[in-house]
Design a protein around this nucleic acid. Structure first.
Length: 421
RNA sequence: GGAGACGUGGCUGAGUGGUCGAAAGCGCCUCACUGCUAACGAGGUAGGGUGUAAAAGCCCUCGAGGGUUCGAAUCCCUCCGUCUCCGCCA
């Protein structure tokens, strides 16, 4: 959500932003609706003022005749007012729907492009492993060491269902612990957050109304969130924060659920694309300045890069092009880790900032030094998403004898150096 | 699941039909006082919208949404949430 005044004053910017994001949106139409809204609002407010004045007069002692006359006048006024209010209500409805469609403006550094094909590589880090043998896929490795069971996964859970077993399960937990410990050391607050969330929360974070298709919904009208970002962001919704406490940094763990409605036929085998997974997410709320947003955007990105490097995983960072940005996102980096069996980098992390797009919807504010209420800025990045990242860990660390070398930082969590020895 | 109570500003808490966006206290800000700090004293202090050069003014908001009324924090209905007791279950 953007400020309507800002939209009116910067309609070219908005229109240009929508074009860059390849989002179909007509600013002029919104402004027309807003004109109607303002005109009706003025009319209704004037009538209400009239009504308030007259009511005060009636409250005083009056001649019975005068009183009767005023009561009659009120009856007429109320009828007029009802009509105008009804009209205002319907215009407001249209206005709100339109306001929910307004895309946030992408940063100048965001490249042009329609889809992830046009994302721009900004750096490549780590050495891709060189194998003296044909490397196995994570599926083969997991079967070999009894780390997962996909057949029983779909028997029990359906398409894309899986069980993790033995060191597969333990490796996943080791990752959670390693990433959580590291982030807590960097000053992030450890949280375990709800996945079951209400509608408003998803509107607030920008996952609704556009993302309905990809969300599981309960018979009570609640939803299963696709990321811990949702509950973490809503944690302070409707609140006024103390400026001194900013930035607030969270490391939020939660189960995540995605219907993958638009991804039929994609990555149908293995752990890459599943309906149910776990994620540790970084969320930051900071002061309302672009510089602060950028600073923490770089920070949450670096946090992950440092840890991937510690784990010895080769990765690259791409800057997402306009067409690959969500409605509320200003800029996004994806971090993609090397998958030897596919000879590709695959997305494991996604870092984006929103300025006040989310906090305006969620109504999260603070008082600045001038005493003015401001919406905080919000941003987030994956810390670690499992089981997806297991793919790269298993494949990159496989040995000629079929064993898997556990990355050094995880050894203490696993209590061993190799899987399969 | 059943019964009852409650939901007011940054916080505590008064307010059951009229000039109440709201007493009082706490907190916070300004001034005065003091060698400095604290206490005491004086004043100020909700948010949003509209409007404007800026203001003033006007409108809305007492959990949310409806309704009754000339007029609602106050009465009625629905929903959400919190608390207490009972039941059920860990």
């Amino acid at each position: 959500m953007l400020d309507i005044k800002f939209i009116r004053e910067n309609k070219e910017l908005i229109q240009e932003g929508a074009r860059k994001k390849h989002i179909n949106f007509d600013v002029e139409k919104l402004i027309e609706t807003d004109d109607k809204r303002l005109k009706l609002l003025k009319a209704v407010e004037d009538m209400r003022a009239e009504q308030n004045r007259t009511s005060l007069m009636i409250g005083n002692n009056l001649e019975p005749a005068q009183r009767t006359q005023l009561l009659n006048e009120m009856k007429i006024l109320k009828e007029d007012m009802k009509n105008q209010e009804d009209e205002l209500k319907s215009v407001m409805h249209e206005w709100q729907l339109s306001m929910l469609q307004v895309p946030n403006i992408p940063d100048i550094s965001v490249p042009e492009g329609e889809s992830d094909e046009q994302n721009m590589e900004v750096r490549v880090v780590g050495e891709k492993p060189v194998f003296s043998f044909t490397p196995k896929s994570h599926l083969e490795l997991m079967e070999m060491h009894d780390l997962a069971d996909f057949e029983r996964g779909s028997k029990v859970s359906g398409f894309r269902g899986y069980f993790l077993k033995n060191d597969g399960a333990r490796l996943e937990m080791a990752l959670w612990n390693y990433f959580m410990d590291s982030l807590v050391q960097k000053g992030y607050r450890a949280m375990i957050v709800p996945s079951l969330v209400n509608r408003e929360t998803l509107f607030g974070t920008g996952y609704l109304p556009q993302g309905e298709e990809d969300l599981y919904k309960t018979q009570d009208g609640d939803y299963l969130a696709g990321t811990g970002e949702v509950a973490t962001m809503a944690y302070y919704s409707g609140e006024v924060l103390e400026k001194e406490k900013l930035p607030l940094k969270f490391a939020s763990f939660s189960p995540c659920f995605r219907r993958e409605a638009g991804a039929h036929g994609k990555d149908v085998k293995g752990l890459y694309r599943v309906h149910e997974f776990f994620k540790l997410e970084q969320v930051v709320l900071c002061e309302a300045s672009h510089e602060e947003s950028v600073k923490y955007h770089e920070e949450v990105t670096k946090n992950v890069e440092d840890l991937l490097t510690e784990l010895g995983l080769p990765y690259h960072v791409v800057i997402n092009c306009g067409g690959d940005l969500g409605l509320g996102q200003v800029k996004k980096y994806d971090i993609e880790v090397w998958v030897p069996s596919q000879e590709k980098y695959r997305e494991t992390h996604s870092a984006s900032y929103f300025h006040d797009f989310q906090t305006r919807r969620l109504n999260i504010r603070y008082k600045d030094t001038e005493g003015k209420m401001r919406y905080v800025h919000s941003l987030n990045n994956t810390a670690v998403a499992t089981p997806r990242i297991l793919i790269s860990i298993l494949e990159n660390n496989q040995q000629a004898d079929g064993t898997i070398k556990i990355p050094a930082p995880l050894v203490k969590y696993m209590g061993k150096e190799y899987i399969g020895k």
